[in-house]
């Protein structure tokens, strides 16, 4: 039995299940790989959109393809992760059929939207100068907080800290908002993808312990 067993009696079964699930869900690095790729695809969109007029046909096609790919990847992320695991990793990871988490996901999205809306209203009410810069810093903190909350491990805290620091630092630069967003999502996506790839490679190197 591993060392976490000693904590079991101090936690409720729900907390135990949630902690074990989180660890299982993140142990192969796939969520980070897909989210990192999604961020990298999304990163240049706004900046490309601003500079698309008068661009060559190939650049316009790349822009359209990028929008399409981002939308497809964004909408199919949970399904894609599940499919890759069942198709290629079932011998390593085992099989699990989860209960529907639609209610929980809806709740989280509603809370996130409410926090964002309230922050925006507060910022407008306070008549903050350079509102776009505040939004950029808040975006960095928000993405960082989400990563730290989801992962609760060192690698996620590092990714969270870099994301938050990037957002805050960019808020103090004189670069255009489009370029700042591209750099922010590019940086955040790149470190998330790298972290996921390292975890995935280490996971695939583990020996398969088959049998019961």
């Amino acid at each position: 039995m591993n060392q976490s067993s000693s904590r079991l009696l101090e936690e409720t079964p729900e907390v135990i299940a949630s902690r074990l699930f989180q660890r299982a869900h993140l142990r192969d690095g796939l969520p980070e790989i897909f989210v990192g790729t999604f961020f990298l695809l999304v990163a240049p969109l706004d900046w490309m959109g601003q500079n698309i007029n008068g661009a060559p046909m190939a650049a316009k096609a790349a822009y359209a393809a990028n929008i399409l790919l981002s939308m497809i990847l964004g909408m199919s992320l949970p399904w894609l992760i599940k499919w890759v695991r069942r198709r290629f990793l079932v011998e390593r990871e085992g099989y699990v059929r989860l209960k529907s988490a639609k209610r929980q996901v809806t709740y989280i999205l509603l809370v996130a939207a409410a926090i964002f809306a309230l922050s925006l209203v507060a910022a407008l009410w306070l008549k903050l100068p350079n509102l776009d810069r505040w939004i950029l810093a808040a975006l960095g903190l928000y993405v960082g907080a989400v990563w730290a909350f989801i992962g609760q491990t060192l690698r996620f805290r590092i990714v969270a800290a870099i994301s938050a620091a990037t957002g805050i630092l960019l808020a103090f630069t004189a670069l255009s908002m489009q370029l700042c967003l591209a750099i922010f999502f590019g940086m955040s996506g790149l470190i998330t993808l790298l972290s996921g790839l390292v975890v995935f490679i280490r996971f695939m190197r583990l020996p398969i312990e088959a049998g019961e």
Binding site: P13, L20, E93, G94, A210, E212
Partner: peptide
């Protein structure tokens, strides 16, 4: 308790998944 807590949160899981988790 760990096994039961996990199984309470899913529809079903196989041996390998329980072992890994």
């Amino acid at each position: 308790l760990m096994i039961v807590a996990l199984l309470a949160a899913v529809e079903e899981a196989d041996f390998q998944y329980l072992r890994q988790t």
